[in-house]
Design a protein around this nucleic acid. Structure first.
Lengths: 138, 138
DNA sequence: TTGCGTGCAAAGGTTTTGCATGGCA
DNA sequence: TGCCATGCAAAACCTTTGCACGCAA
């Protein structure tokens, strides 16, 4: 399921390289396209969409879409197992993405599952707010 | 700030009526437009967008947008104060929206703020997963 | 009567699709 | 060589904006 299917092309290589370098943030097709063009290795947006779709199917990239709609962000997943067990906090001001892994959250998950019968999908859930640098204290 | 500005038109009335009837779910412009058309009281999408924008400014409707992009969902807010103090769980299977208000979550919020310096914005945060009816147990 | 709200149509942006070409294996 | 991946362009969507008309106050 996760095996690398298909050919190895320069475009795919460049795309993966960008995604891996930016695994700490959410990104999108525009950003990717702009960056690759600036690097002198432009890749057509259609190709980017198609490759991302494939990477999502392979489980190498996570796609955050709102209610199944368009306008998605993508994020490379370094360690699938690890990322499955923690939450992501995203700062609405600076866009920073924080990986939050602490036992309070495991408690929360257990609680919601046992008491409320709801099973949280970590891969689609993002907490929005403000990080400490951007005025989390106010 | 929350006072009802502007004229009272039939379109606005129909829109508000729909939103109030569907306050338990997230909705979007297409759904609203389709429903109102089916009811025999069609409202132009431009009008729906403009009215929703206004309602969001007035605090009567919450807009969930992904990363500030387009493609939003909207939700009518019955009791602003109440909804500000709890989380929303959304089932990825049936679309049900659950308002979750329990002290575990208050603990979580406090913990994340104190230990991680991150202030959660309830109005933008939605937990995705599966509700008990849709196989939360598997 | 005044001016806001509406509808239509056009524009702007994002994502998908069809098709011919080029490159990987 | 065979076939998949790419790029371009067109199409399909969603959302916003401009403008003239109609309706609320």
């Amino acid at each position: 399921m996760k095996r690398d299917s298909g050919y190895n092309t320069k475009q795919k290589e460049n795309l993966l390289s960008y995604l891996m370098k930016n695994k700490d943030k959410h990104t999108n097709v525009q950003e990717i396209s702009a960056f690759l063009s600036a690097e002198g290795t432009p890749v057509g947006v259609a190709t980017i969409y198609r490759q991302l779709d494939r990477l999502v199917e392979q489980g190498l990239v996570r796609k955050y879409a709102f209610d199944g709609k368009t306008c998605a962000c993508y994020q490379y997943i370094e360690d699938e197992e690890q990322c499955r067990s923690h939450f992501h906090l995203k700062c609405l001001s600076c866009g920073r993405l924080i990986h939050l892994d602490c036992e309070h959250l495991a408690d929360l998950t257990r609680h919601i599952e046992e008491e409320h019968g709801f099973s949280i999908d970590y891969s689609q859930t993002v907490f929005y707010g403000r990080c400490s640098d951007c005025g989390g204290k106010d």
